[in-house]
Nucleic acid binder design. Structure first.
Length: 876
RNA sequence: GGGCGCGUAGCUCAGCGGGAGAGCACUCGCCUUACAAGCGAGGGGUCGCAGGUUCGAAACCUGCCGCGCCCA
């Protein structure tokens, strides 16, 4: 007497015929938050797992890039949570200095106002107002995606704690001599009126002009920026250039100005470019600035902050782009233009915020001396403390950190962290820490003023992995969750943000890295591999997909395309496919519930399991192990692919179909099948939950009666369930069924049409017990009185199926089918034989490989014999 | 100009030394009581080109052609 396995839940819900995500998602998400499922505690005994979100701009909204980045992070965090880690995913935003200031300035401009009309204090107040009311829409959008972030820990780079961190860091770097102020050439945006760091400049190949100007009979220079000649203070040639060596040390008169400027020899000059002579404008070109320094040349600034010419009579007051043709015309009038090339395509820098052409500008700015910091940032990856995934991208990282320039951190903005430096009336410079009184209010007398500038936004986001955890205070959060576990971001941001966090983290946290792993992904692209851009009109709004197909479908589409470090193409059709997959899961579970499947109690003992049960459990064991492994190496695409095929092919197409007759038959075998089906779905839904959280939650709770799949233990592969014999048997069964189906299809038999058949040789192939299943799936009735075989299908392993098609066999179709098979078998045999006939192969290839080819030849020859016999029978 | 990477089925991509794969698209047949957002079957590729290494190359090496990205 065996104990009944059935534990029917009378409350088991019935599911609708289709999955409707919209209805489910909001309800589930609100419940998760209300139940505190995403909260992480610093006093937990559990091992921590931490991800800090790459903070989106406060001005931003959710785009596909975020959706991809967040899907990956959420999948990692949800899995770790299921594995029992104290999993923290910390959300927040950065203040996006230039971008945010631009937004508010535009609003003011509509009222005909500038920020100067309001004054600094009122303007900043206004920006805060904007931030509070319409900033941060992206946070609401993250809920639609299903992000399991700890909302209680949301941070903003401008909030009090993080501002304190910024000031602390500035002071620390300043005191260590790693921050300095200097007059340097920096990238300047004449529209935003601020300095930019190198990485805020985007280079594009633009049409320009290359004009060659004769300064004297001996001196001709080529330039794309003729207008800057007004600021030339030298002409340079390569010191080894035979053509011009004799000119070094002489002078030439600069046209239009009458100034005499020296000719210098500098190895930076490329003798092959143009005439091999270059004009040197130290105040308006970074390379020229360096040449100027080497030769002690004066730097003449000829433009104001808006790019307007400030000197030289007729050109004064002209914008830089008006001045260019005017100066060329003036030079031409003097017969000094000896060559012109238009269009001349060359790289031009643009402000990454407003696209304005960047103007190199000599000005007094604050810099971080990055050399010691960048060295440490490189070493942390070199010595393995920080792992970059995929490892190939480490090369790019090194290329950046090993050649880093000093970082210009001052911005001529009002929105941001104001530089904590005060200047005294007698030239004093004081850097003030967070707990120190600024000199202006400490009775040191009048005349003190604070630096007007603010810090680059990246300065504060560089502190993100620890400022968000409470640094500079030694908080329990910092102790528990730092270093963070993984940083997930795009390779496009490796240089600026990631490298900065590495430098700051190692420096501020006594050499402890900000994260153990940097997991990189690429850009989301359209279904032709094109970058999404407004000008192309191929931008897809993830919220649109979430509305129409569900968050799960959107996430699955992204995760399925996410190969490490690779770009991720998406299309609406693929999203529909993902939606269909969710619906497939829905219906599989629906079928299971209708048939009384459940996940209560232990699995039946091995001897009570059918071969088919043992097969699906064996498959489950393999898939679980593989999925787990792929997750560990951030192979989201492989995780999705494995689960997709396991769910659809193994579970739905075969296990469910094979179980139908068993379930219908009732009795103990049906009881066992109900439990096994329930178990497989239970585990499958858990494995899928990190990627598609909503539908799996809905189905898992319906199936198991459990409270939430969110904290259900993550499946562990049970190697004891691996069953090679069962897998082989089911493979044979599948082959027989598929062969019969193929015959039926080729013969044009309707799926509903039953055909009588006699099955021979099943015992020899070890599948005698499965005859009923084979008949069921292949729709074959038993041969009875008057059975007359009109066709015989011979299959590998001595199995043959004789079918009675009432004499209506389509001989031509059958001959064509067999001939096709014969060609394939012949090719196979030929290839194998060729190899085996090669003594070098037999002699040098590993024994295993040779054996495999021998086996292949044997199978192919047997197939040939079988097919020939069938063809013979067909013609007689 | 320097560096990195990529060219595999119509499209997008896996595979990266031993039988050419997936999704979508395509063709044929089906409302087979979980699912037509579905079921069954099928077609389709001298793996950019040319050399080389190897018993064996889509995979490794060299060169060329084409494309992309980053930096200057």
């Amino acid at each position: 007497m065996t104990e009944s396995l059935d534990a029917h839940r009378p409350d088991a819900p019935t599911l609708a015929g289709q999955y409707q995500p919209g209805e489910v998602e909001q309800r589930r998400y609100e419940q998760w938050v209300a139940d505190g499922r995403f909260r992480a505690s610093a006093d937990s005994d559990r091992e921590p797992f931490t991800i800090v979100i790459p903070p989106p701009n406060v001005t931003g909204s959710l785009h596909m890039g975020h959706a991809l980045d967040h899907t990956m992070q959420d999948a990692l965090v949800r899995r770790k949570r299921m594995q029992g880690f104290e999993a923290l995913w910390l959300p927040g935003m950065d203040h996006a200095g230039i971008a945010t200031q631009n937004v508010v300035e535009r609003q003011l401009a509509e009222q005909g106002l500038s920020r100067h009309d309001l004054g600094r204090e009122k303007f900043v107040e206004r920006v805060w107002q904007w931030k509070d009311t319409s900033g941060g829409t992206i946070l609401g959008q993250m809920r639609r995606l299903g992000d399991s972030v700890d909302w209680d820990r949301e941070r903003f780079t401008m909030d009090e704690g993080l501002s304190r961190a910024v000031q602390t860091m500035f002071k620390k770097l300043y005191d260590d001599g790693l921050i300095y102020r200097a007059n340097r050439i920096i990238n300047w945006c004449p529209r935003c009126l601020t300095a930019l760091s190198d990485i805020e400049v985007e280079h594009t190949d633009d049409d320009g002009e290359l004009v060659s100007i004769r300064y004297s009979d001996d001196v001709v220079v080529a330039t794309t920026r003729a207008e800057t000649m007004l600021g030339d203070t030298a002409v340079a040639v390569h010191p080894d250039d035979e053509r011009y060596r004799h000119l070094i040390g002489t002078e030439v008169e600069l046209p239009l100005t009458g100034r005499r400027i020296p000719i210098v020899g500098d190895p930076h000059v490329d003798p092959a470019f143009g005439t091999g002579m270059v004009k040197v404008t130290p105040a308006h070109d970074p390379n020229d600035f360096e040449i100027g320094q080497r030769h002690d040349l004066p730097a003449l600034t000829i433009m104001d902050e808006r790019g307007v010419i400030t000197a030289h009579g007729p050109f004064e007051g002209l914008d830089r782009f008006e001045a260019r043709p005017a100066i060329v015309a003036a030079l031409r009038a003097q017969g000094r233009i000896v060559a012109e090339k238009r269009p001349y395509v060359h790289a031009v820098g643009h402000c990454s915020r407003c696209r304005t052409t960047v103007e190199p500008r000599l000005s007094l700015q604050w810099f971080v001396n990055t050399s010691p910091l960048a060295k440490a940032a490189g070493d942390a990856v070199r010595d393995g403390r920080v792992r970059i995934e995929p490892p190939e991208l480490a090369k790019r990282y090194f290329a950046w950190v090993d050649n880093m320039h000093d970082w210009c951190i001052s911005r001529q903005l009002w929105w941001g962290h104001r530089i904590p430096v005060w200047y005294g009336p007698d030239g004093e410079v004081v850097c003030v820490g967070p707990d120190e009184e600024p000199p202006s209010s400490s009775g040191d007398g009048p005349g003190w003023h604070q630096d007007e500038d603010v810090l680059d936004t990246w300065f504060s986001s560089g502190l993100w992995p620890f400022s968000t955890l409470g640094w500079p205070e030694q908080t329990p959060e910092l102790a528990k969750f730092y270093p963070t576990s993984v940083l997930v971001t795009g390779y496009d941001i490796l240089f600026f943000w990631v490298a900065r966090m590495m430098m700051f983290g190692l420096y501020a946290m006594d050499g402890k890295q900000p994260f153990d792993v940097i997991a990189l992904h690429g850009m989301v692209r359209d279904d032709h591999g094109k970058k999404m851009s407004k000008s192309f009109g191929n931008v897809v709004d993830p919220l649109d997909w979430i509305d129409r197909y569900g968050a799960d479908a959107t996430r699955f589409t992204l995760a399925r395309g996410a190969n490490p470090g690779g770009d991720v193409p998406v299309s609406e059709e693929w999203c529909q496919g993902s939606r269909n997959f969710c619906n497939k899961l829905w219906n599989a579970t629906r079928f299971a519930l209708i048939n009384g499947a459940h996940a209560v109690g232990p699995l039946p003992e091995a001897e009570r399991l059918s071969t088919v049960d043992r097969w699906i459990l064996s498959r489950l064991a393999h898939v679980t192990a593989e999925v787990d492994e792929q997750f560990e190496s951030y192979e989201f695409a492989k995780v999705c692919d494995l689960l997709y095929h396991f769910a659809w092919d193994d579970v739905c197409d075969w296990y469910v179909e094979l179980s139908k007759p068993v379930l219908a038959g009732g009795g103990e075998s049906a009881e066992v099948a109900r439990r096994v089906l329930g178990h497989v779905l239970d585990q499958l839904l858990r494995l899928l939950h990190p990627v598609i959280p909503f539908v799996t939650e809905e189905l898992w709770t319906a199936l198991t009666g459990g409270e939430t799949v969110l904290t259900a233990p993550w499946p562990v592969s049970d190697r004891a369930l691996v069953d090679d014999a069962a897998e082989a048997e089911v493979a044979t069964l599948q082959r027989v069924v598929t062969e019969v189906r193929r015959f039926r299809s080729d013969q044009g038999l309707r799926p509903t049409q039953r055909v009588t058949a006699r099955l021979d040789g099943l015992a020899g192939a070890g599948v005698a017990a499965h005859e009923p299943l084979i008949r069921s799936l292949a729709r074959l009735d038993p041969a009875g009185e008057g059975f007359q075989a009109s066709a015989t299908l011979a299959m590998p392993g001595e199995v043959s199926v004789a079918l009675d098609t009432r004499g209506s066999i389509d001989v031509a179709a059958e001959r064509a089918r067999l001939t096709k098979d014969r060609t394939a078998a012949e090719k196979e045999a030929g290839q194998a034989r060729a190899k085996l006939d090669n003594p070098a192969f037999v002699g040098k290839a590993p024994e295993q490989v040779v054996a495999k080819i021998r086996e292949r030849l044997a199978v192919a020859e047997a197939d040939l014999a079988r097919i020939d016999a069938a063809l013979e029978a067909l013609s007689s």
